[in-house]
């Protein structure tokens, strides 16, 4: 356990002072722009938080969260793939499990930062556009936290791919390619919930009345699928990393 925290602390230092912070603020900034400019007022009606959240989260959850999960996974392995990085790191007194879990934790921490900034962006835009109904905290927290939770399997899958492919670009290209059909798969209640690239969007959309396709799914089933695939992807990645020839 001590080793895990020490590796995590080293990983944090390695990620700091890099352009990763630009990526963290990117999506919330875009969401803010969309929220500030979108035409949401229906005749004479006030904007509700639900509407604001769905408008702002659409692009964020459908596109940015899956892509960022892959980008962070690739970034966290990049320096190790260059030169003798894995050799240097794994010849230190560390266990491979702690290195892998520390890297995974870093990805999830970065995604948590993205979600918190996104939340701040929603609240900010709401205040700007004069939404004056009470803030539905439960719904917000479920959406923000749910979106983060739903990134976990994808991040685990992307880390598994990034640690084994020495290329930086290939896992990213694969990731973006598989993110693109999200809008199509969202219509399928059969496959949708099992698509790791779609899960963040399913989890973040407010659970209101008019649900369709994969959205028409109880939260509990989504959580079950998410946790199940998380354990699967994490186990596969860890297994392969522990046997990796460096």
């Amino acid at each position: 356990m001590g080793i895990f925290w020490r590796v995590l602390s080293a990983e944090r230092l390695k990620m700091s002072k890099s352009f990763v912070w630009l990526l963290v603020i990117g999506s919330p900034a875009v969401a803010m722009l969309i929220g500030a400019l979108a035409n949401m007022e229906e005749e004479g009606q006030m904007i509700t938080w639900e509407v604001l959240l769905s408008v702002m989260s659409l692009f964020h959850a459908m596109f940015f969260l899956p892509v960022l999960s892959g980008v962070f996974a690739a970034l966290i392995c990049r320096a190790e793939h260059a030169d003798g990085g894995w050799k240097q790191l794994l010849a230190l007194p560390v266990t491979r499990t702690s290195v892998y879990l520390a890297k995974y934790t870093m990805i999830m921490a970065l995604l948590a930062a993205v979600q918190l900034l996104f939340f701040a962006a929603v609240l900010g835009v709401g205040a700007l556009r004069g939404v004056d109904v009470p803030i539905p905290w439960t719904m917000f927290l479920a959406s923000i936290f749910g979106g983060w939770l739903a990134c976990m399997p994808l991040a685990a899958l992307q880390l598994a791919i990034s640690q084994s492919w020495s290329s930086f670009g290939a896992p990213l290209a694969l990731n973006v390619t598989l993110t693109m059909p999200n809008m199509l798969i969202a219509n399928s209640s059969t496959y949708g919930p099992y698509d790791p690239w779609l899960q963040p969007m399913l989890a973040m959309s407010p659970f209101g009345e008019d649900r369709f396709g994969a959205f028409n799914l109880p939260l509990e089933s989504l959580i079950t699928v998410v946790l199940g695939s998380l354990i699967l992807f994490l186990a596969v990645g860890l297994f392969s990393f522990r046997r990796k020839a460096v």
Binding site: A79, D83, G84, K87, A91
Partner: peptide, 18 residues
């Protein structure tokens, strides 16, 4: 054992931006 071993294998590794 690794606690008492220092190594440099092939090329040195580093974080360029640091």
């Amino acid at each position: 054992i690794l606690r008492k071993v220092g190594s440099l294998v092939e090329s040195p590794s580093y974080y360029g931006h640091l």
